[in-house]
């Protein structure tokens, strides 16, 4: 099976380790991973801030880049949600029926990482080893926009050496919200601190989530607090094996 990776801007620029973990994990599972270099941003930051016209070229570029692939994997619930739920909106705005059709066609083949693993590849035990106590934050867009349900949990529970502890108020938003974190910085921080308080209360060493955006926000608070809790993307946990445990990118 040939799968194209949409790595997302944040992972590309700030957390390349996430993308590397996806590649390593999928190759271990026998998947042929391709990274189309022509890929750009999915347009979510623009759409969510209200700049729909500006997002049109990005949607066109997305369709062009990925239309020939069987499946696209995205290590982000938020970006997968943006492609599946917002690209149609942008295409309608562009008033281009051809684009709308293409968007519908391509976005149906776009999967968030846990969806690809569980639904497309049919695995929950990916053969990972991660000897740490972790807690999992289900990010809002994977939870409510995509409805990934308990897939990430099932994947984590199958990881050897991993002890998963429940996060209280897990389904509450962490306060990142894209440009919300800047436009409404005070509220964003108030929400983030509450999330971090719950995380610290679990006694976990590692906070795991499927979105680098939320992890950058929460991770930034955890290090500011010298909390002694690190963050890891779901992909990094699942990519880890006995000989090769993935941590934060160096």
């Amino acid at each position: 099976m040939r799968v194209a990776l949409l790595v997302t801007c944040l992972n590309d620029a700030l957390r390349p380790g996430t993308g590397q973990a996806v590649v390593s994990l999928l190759r271990r599972l026998g998947v042929d991973v391709d990274f189309p270099l022509a890929q750009t941003c999915c347009g979510q930051p623009l759409v969510n801030t209200g700049y729909l016209d500006e997002a049109v070229p990005l949607v066109r570029s997305f369709v062009r880049t990925f239309e020939s692939h069987d499946a696209v994997v995205v290590p982000s619930g938020s970006c997968a949600g943006s492609v599946r739920h917002q690209h149609a909106l942008v295409a309608r705005r562009a008033g281009d029926p051809g684009l709308a059709t293409a968007v519908e066609e391509v976005s149906s083949r776009v999967h968030e990482l846990s969806e690809l693993l569980v639904d497309v590849l049919g695995v929950t035990d990916v053969g990972a080893y991660y000897p740490h106590t972790v807690t999992y934050h289900p990010t809002c867009h994977s939870l409510r926009m995509l409805g990934v349900g308990d897939r990430p949990r099932r994947l984590l529970e199958a990881v050897r050496g991993l002890r998963l502890v429940d996060l209280p108020a897990a389904e509450e938003c962490c306060g990142f919200g894209g440009t919300f974190a800047l436009k409404n910085a005070d509220t964003s921080v108030a929400m983030g601190f509450d999330k971090v308080r719950h995380v610290r209360g679990t006694g976990a060493e590692v906070l795991v989530a499927g979105d680098t955006s939320c992890l950058t926000h929460l991770g930034g608070m955890l290090t500011r607090q010298r909390a002694g809790v690190r963050v890891a993307h779901l992909a990094q946990v699942l990519a880890s094996t006995e000989g090769d445990v993935w941590g934060e990118p160096a």
Partner: peptide, 26 residues
Amino acid sequence: RRWTGARDLPRPPRESFRAWWRRTGG
């Protein structure tokens, strides 16, 4: 400052994912 008021910035990576892919082919 709206970001850094309460959160640390991530450490910049040595190279972007894209650069890594170009260099190593993944």
